[in-house]
Design a protein around this nucleic acid. Structure first.
Lengths: 263, 263
DNA sequence: TCGGCGCTTGAATCGACGT
DNA sequence: AACGTCGATTCAAGCGCCG
């Protein structure tokens, strides 16, 4: 029974799951958005330092990811920020940096206003505070093993603003330039959330996979250790890749499977 | 001679300068963009660990800033990112966090493309690399002493997307909502840079000062320990505030003074 | 007994979206 | 057009603990 774990979401803890189910270096791309505060049993010893334990747990996840990722693979780690929670995203990213190299930092822009240009796009998330600015940003840290993975930047390219640049350089054969590290993707709206309370949009996962490059391996397998409602699996399926994932919560698991069937 | 240092840029090292010239708690707002690699004498002992020394030096700067800043003052720290330089901005910010609280993280968006909406704004900075995305982002870390400084969010507000919100709440008297933490400010163009090779746009410094709130103190003094070509001083002057700063390089100092006279 | 903490808890709040 | 909904919200009051 070779690869009988392909296109499966397992209801188990992701660290145990990855170690038990996935062979070394079998995964080409990991896209994930870890949950904020679960996965640790605080009941006995650790009740005083939950965040420190959470960090260590994240380090363990990173290590397990390292084992299963291909040497030329990519790991995309989505992390939000809370103004009241200093450097949270950064500290988690540093745990991953114990094993991986941070090759790119992508900024997911959910909302931006440019009054001068009459631009005012995206869902604006209210914050009731006189000291904190409304946060409309999340990080996507791009980790690789050596920091030298070749990317397919034009796969998620955008048209040139100045069309005279087309044909100006030998690589500029089409009206397509790299997108840069600022990615605008709007919030899911309330209604969309009701149907699929996804941690991040399918489109975001799609962009990560395409940026890594689709033509690299066979079989091309995308992993999400925290599958949640299945956005990563959906993106992989849409792009013709295999997926595999783990999710403890049976309700989320069911939701993910429903979304996959529908698609 | 009281306050004879107002509206002055001193040609000296900023740590020595701040300690010598500025009284405790005399400054209301600090806006600064530290240089990348100067300020340390590598010649004798430290040749093996330049970045570590740079970090320590940044910590010393932070400490000197802490002394001169008002208890309800704000420090805006602008830091760029290099993809090849892992977590550089965060590590510097953490040095400041030894003394200050990180109250907000602002993202300076220099360029963003949203092909779906045919939006493609800002100067696109080409990068010849197959592994690194084009970086069009810098951080502005907002530090305060206790993390509880009240801001004037509407001073840099933007119009509502949904006008039916105007008048809906008692504070919403005008078509103005908070801007959030994503600030679009375009690159200075090459031509502008030739005239004033500024580390950051005057507009950015203006927005920081206005966000802190202009009605807070008299005299309202804005400090930049690394004055460079004088953007912070220019912004302060434009807004009717006093400025003070330090700059080692005589050529930059001269440039800053020229820009201030012109304005 | 009073006051200053840390933690918990409920109230208030914002702006876009949907009806 | 007006208004109810919703948030990996924030904020301040309240309680218990300790000096």
């Amino acid at each position: 029974m070779k690869n009988n774990w392909l296109d499966t979401i397992f209801q188990m803890d992701c660290i145990k799951g990855m170690n038990a189910v996935l062979p070394e270096k079998s995964i080409e791309v990991i896209v994930t958005s870890p949950p904020y505060n679960i996965g640790i049993d605080y009941s006995v010893y650790h009740d005083k330092q939950p965040f420190k334990d959470y960090l260590q747990w994240m380090g363990d996840v990173a290590q397990a990811c390292y084992r299963v990722l291909n040497d030329k693979g990519s790991l995309f780690l989505n992390l939000g920020d809370k103004p009241s929670d200093e450097f949270r995203a950064f500290k988690i990213a540093q745990e991953f940096a114990r094993f991986f190299k941070l090759q790119n930092t992508i900024h997911w822009v959910k909302s931006i206003a440019i009054p001068e240009k009459k631009i005012n796009i995206g869902h604006y998330k209210p914050v009731n505070s006189e000291r904190y600015l409304n946060n409309s940003h999340e990080y996507i840290f791009h980790f690789t093993k050596k920091g030298d993975v070749i990317l397919d930047k034009l796969a998620i390219g955008v048209p040139y603003a100045d069309k005279s640049n087309i044909g100006r350089w030998k690589h500029a054969k089409q009206d397509l330039r790299g997108r840069g590290n600022q990615w605008f993707i709007p919030y899911e709206t309330v209604q969309e959330k009701k149907a699929h309370p996804a941690a991040f949009p399918v489109k975001l996962a799609e962009m990560c996979i395409k940026l890594h490059g689709l033509q690299k391996k066979e079989p091309f397998i995308v992993l999400d250790p925290f599958m949640g409602s299945g956005s990563t699996a959906l993106a992989a399926k849409k792009l013709g890749c295999h997926y595999v994932g783990f999710e403890i919560d049976p309700q989320y698991l069911q939701l993910a499977q429903q979304r996959l069937e529908k698609q």
